[in-house]
Design a protein around this nucleic acid. Structure first.
Length: 950
DNA sequence: CGCTTCACG
DNA sequence: ACGTACGTGAAGCGC
């Protein structure tokens, strides 16, 4: 077995753990700060568990001065005294290390990096793979020795990282690891008070080494270096030489690597338990010590608030007692876990169901008559395609009580299938029958292609789950496993895995199809029985019954309708884009001096930053590639003319491949129209999303892009497109729910909100607001919605951080209500565990309690943004339902065809436009009145294509 | 299949 | 020491 030695730089890890949690430290009930102990211990345990070292040692610095101090009195002179509670952590940490039976290595006169370097090289010579565990980049120099690596432990949401010589060179932008000490000598190190050359930082140092290879050679050539840089180097020669010496890790420390001494041994569990109890490491103790920890751990865990117990519904509902007990089991364990005691009582297994095949006319007649006596029917369709617009019916399944299932096969012959459906016609048309389904929009759409519509109320279990647990995944298999403790037959077992050999339900023998299909209906019904009380417990019934559930039929109709696309126009435009893209592409190759795949970010990065030597400004992607996104490239535009050609190429090929060439291929052969599909249970905030194709991201911002909107046209010359959109809806919602007096008043007076904002922020009359100021104010207004800080605003507007900060500070002063809202909503979330919209749509943000700054920050921004984005989503959904209802009851022939978050598009009969316009606007404005008398405004336009109408 | 980029609100 | 503005879907690259 390969021997793996891990050497931990204790003080560096301790400092990092302590300061990493400085904003929300771990404090014991006695008030002791245990951040350092905790952080160090988790790092140690994670390494042992994950990396499985065979050998391990922990290295400390001692208080004794080192050679570096005696040679250079300023060394580490500006370092602050370590905080009291950090120093107090050291004895605990040493006890823990001792209890793990791990050796501590320290030696007066040497720092931990010297010891680690010496031992690392000795061990590597002895055939070990050596990992130096430290966040300190100076260790890179030790990687000149083979089989020695740096192990950066995970921190603040970053994954652990193993650095080898190549990665070190990439990080520093140098050619050889030997140059690490040269770069450190040139740039110095502020933390250790190593001076380096004044005015030379990381970038300049790397540039100098690229040209002169070593620090000594840089200094030797100092006279050849012109300008201010040359002067700085000439002035800093001595500092540089000394700095290099200080930065060089000593690898000849009088320590010896003893294999047996460093070998990992058993832990002293009683001592570990004692320390963990003392430090109140409850979860960690349980994790690593298991039951032996619980036995010692006499003090009870802090009582968790019972999230569900208080909400137990004593009223009898229509669910069985078994189901209730299952719900109770779910509830008492925070919804994730299941109580083993109750799993035995689960409702489905392979024996206690009765699934029947229903085929003959008589059988079907009996089924129909049975179903028509029921109050609710759970049903499901089996088809040949995942895309409902292409799907043919293969069978229908029904279930009205747990364990029951009927399956009606439908033959390949369309007329025969129609004949079967005819027998269900009255049932479908019954206004009182209630229909339960999982993603029932799909089934409605399939039926609609056969000319059948369901009249009664719906209950979609997928949507119920969506409002109960918006972030969760909700395939039926998962829901069944989670809520029914039952794993249904998987579709792959019938038709094979995804791929070219995948069959369709049509080829599955009818007995198997029956078991699968009937089970789906059965499970869906049981899920409904579980979700009904859950909707109540979580208090999300309103958004479910007023918005999500009634929206299903609206979306079904919209998807069925589709939109007409002018293919001739797109084909012409494709040719033009192709021609222009070619020109850009050739310009790029000419300027680069090579031909390469311009569509490959990897190749492009290499050409730009290695061949053409543009300055990448240290921007790298997480996989270590050069970032070449639009934001990065725009900032490089002044460095090289090639950048504009790259951006031009990117824009044109994007438009061509994603829209102009793709849309005609998505046209449905039966209708000649494009039918998008709206995902109603995907976006966690409550928005819809659109796919196959996505019609919610059709270009509008660029001139070349917006041309594409001309391809979206009315169905014929009797029709015209009508587009209506909300005006500044999210900002109005911010104003209304924050109650900020200035912003509410601006909206009530019908002002231009960005101009009004600019006037406040800059303290000038609105009439004097410049375009520039309005533009900046607009950016702040949007940034606020997302929880943006000064850094982001500066980046976005290309202004100094200081200016951004000033603007934000002014904004907060003028709009105190908004600042208060942002604080209040975060506190609300920390109190309740969720945030919610006006309609009561909730989003649970468990990361709001995270001690990790980055993770918690993300949750806090979500807490601010979700109620805003979600309320806007609620509002337009209510408007869609109202409009759909009105159009139907007024028997209008116009059709709602698209929704783009704050916009609705209609394929309108020309004669109906005068009725339609006010109908739409009234419904949109009145859909969800906002508090604080903030008015809701909407605008409507018409035209012979989407670009004109919008 | 994950990553990067880019289109929208 | 670290990262920095929310929510989506699709295309193309490269492993």
């Amino acid at each position: 077995m390969q021997k793996k030695l891990f050497l931990l730089d204790a003080m560096a890890l301790i400092y990092r753990a302590y300061y990493g949690l400085i904003r929300s430290p771990r404090i014991t009930s006695a008030g002791k700060n245990t951040s350092a102990q905790f952080g160090f211990t988790t790092t140690l345990i994670d390494i042992i568990n994950k990396e499985k070292p065979t050998h391990l040692a922990v290295c400390f610095d001692t208080h004794a001065p080192t050679e570096r101090h005696t040679d250079f009195t300023d060394y580490k002179a500006n370092r602050q005294e370590a905080p009291e509670d950090l120093l107090q952590s050291l004895p605990d940490i040493k006890r823990i290390i001792e209890a793990f039976n791990i050796p501590v290595v320290e030696l007066d006169g040497y720092e931990a990096d010297d010891i680690i370097g010496t031992v690392a090289w000795q061990a590597a010579d002895a055939g070990y793979e050596v990992y130096m565990v430290t966040p300190d980049k100076d260790y890179g120099q030790l990687l000149i020795h083979d089989h020695v690596y740096i192990y950066k432990p995970p921190f603040m949401g970053n994954k652990e990282e193993i650095l080898d010589a190549k990665k070190i060179c990439e990080k520093w932008d140098i050619q050889r690891v030997e140059q690490v000490i040269d770069i450190l000598g040139l740039m110095g190190d502020a933390v250790d008070n190593i001076p380096g050359i004044k005015g030379v930082g990381e970038k300049t140092a790397a540039k100098l080494l690229k040209e002169y290879d070593t620090l000594e050679n840089v200094l030797a050539n100092a006279d050849n270096i012109t300008g201010a840089l040359g002067e700085k180097i000439r002035a800093g020669k001595e500092d540089a030489i000394m700095s290099k010496k200080l930065a060089t890790i000593i690898t000849k420390v009088p320590v010896e690597f003893h294999e047996e001494n460093y070998r990992l041994k058993d832990w002293n569990k009683p001592v570990l338990t004692e320390v963990f109890v003392e430090l109140e490491f409850k979860t960690l103790g349980k994790r690593v010590l298991g039951d032996s920890f619980n036995a010692f751990h006499a003090a009870p865990e802090a009582q968790q608030t019972d999230l569900f117990g208080a909400v137990v519904d004593t009223k009898k509902s229509d669910i069985s007692r078994k189901t209730e007990s299952t719900v109770a089991a779910q509830s008492s364990l925070f919804g994730d876990d299941t109580s083993t005691g109750l799993v035995a009582e689960k409702n489905i297994n392979n024996t206690d169901h009765d699934y029947q095949l229903v085929q003959t006319d008589e059988e079907i007649a009996n089924l129909v008559s049975y179903l028509s006596e029921q109050a609710e029917i759970c049903f499901d369709t089996e088809t040949t395609h995942i895309d409902a617009n292409e799907a043919e019916l293969v069978g229908l399944s029904f279930s009205c009580r747990p364990g029951e299932g009927f399956y009606v096969p439908c033959p390949a012959d369309r007329a025969a299938t129609m004949a079967i459906l005819q027998k269900f016609k009255d049932l479908f048309a019954s206004p009182t029958m209630k229909w339960i389904g999982q993603n029932i929009k799909y089934d409605l759409l399939v039926l609609k292609w056969y000319g059948f519509e369901i009249a009664g109320e719906l209950f979609d279990t997928m949507l119920a789950h969506y409002v109960i647990e918006p972030e969760g995944r909700r395939s039926m298999d998962l829901l069944s496993a989670q809520y029914l403790q039952y794993e249904p037959v998987h579709i792959d077992e019938l038709i094979g895995k995804k791929g070219k050999n995948q069959g369709t339900m049509r080829e599955v023998e009818v007995e198997k199809a029956k078991d699968y299909a009937a089970e789906d209906a059965d499970i869906t019904l049981q899920l409904k029985n579980i979700f009904v009380p859950l909707l109540k417990e979580k208090a999300v019934e309103r958004v479910f019954s007023e918005a999500e559930n009634p929206l299903v039929k609206v979306l079904t109709d919209m998807e069925f309708e589709g939109v007409k696309v002018d293919v001739g126009f797109l084909n012409d435009y494709s040719v033009e884009l192709e021609r222009e893209a070619k020109i850009f592409e050739n310009n790029v190759y000419e300027q680069a001096g090579v031909r390469f795949n311009l569509a490959s970010p990897k190749q492009l990065g290499e050409v730009l930053f290695e061949k053409l030597k543009l300055d990448p400004k240290a921007k790298k992607t997480k996989t270590g590639q050069y970032a070449t996104g639009e934001d990065v490239l725009s900032k490089l535009a002044h460095q090289h003319k090639i950048v504009d050609d790259i951006l031009g190429f990117r824009q044109l090929t994007k438009l061509k491949s994603t829209y102009v060439d793709a849309l005609p291929l998505m046209i449905n052969s039966k209708t000649g129209r494009v039918h998008t599909s709206y995902a109603q249970a995907v976006a966690v905030t409550g928005r819809l999303s659109s796919n196959n194709p996505n019609l919610q991201n059709i270009p509008i911002r660029s001139d070349r892009g917006k041309e594409i909107r001309k391809a979206f046209v009315p169905r014929d010359s009797n029709h015209i497109l009508v587009s209506a959109d909300y005006s500044q809806i999210e900002l109005r919602i911010v104003a209304a729910i924050s109650g900020d007096p200035n912003m509410c008043e601006a909206f009530r007076q019908g002002k231009d909100i960005h101009t009004a904002t600019a006037a406040k922020v800059y303290g000038i009359p609105e009439s004097e607001v410049t375009k520039e100021q309005r533009y900046k104010a607009k950016s702040v207004n949007f940034g606020i919605i997302y929880g943006q800080g000064a850094f982001g605003l500066a980046d976005n507007l290309g202004i100094a951080r200081s200016e951004a900060k000033e603007i934000i500070d002014n904004y907060k002063k003028e709009f105190t209500g908004i600042t208060k809202y942002m604080d209040d909503i975060v506190n609300f979330c920390k109190d309740k565990g969720y945030v919610e919209t006006i309609l009561g749509r909730k989003r649970w943000l468990k990361d709001i309690y995270s001690s990790n700054f980055t993770v918690r920050g993300y949750a806090e921004r979500n807490a601010v943004n979700s109620p805003i984005q979600g309320t806007a989503a609620d509002m337009i959904k209510l408007a869609m339902i109202k409009i759909h209802h009105e159009m139907k009851s007024q028997k209008l022939q116009s059709r709602m065809i698209l929704q783009v978050h704050d916009e609705l598009v209609f394929d309108a009969v020309k004669e109906e436009v005068d009725i339609l316009k006010p109908l739409i606007l009234n419904c949109m404005k009145a859909a969800l009145p906002l508090p604080n008398e903030v008015p809701v405004e909407a605008e409507v336009g018409i035209g012979d294509n989407w670009l004109v109408a919008h």
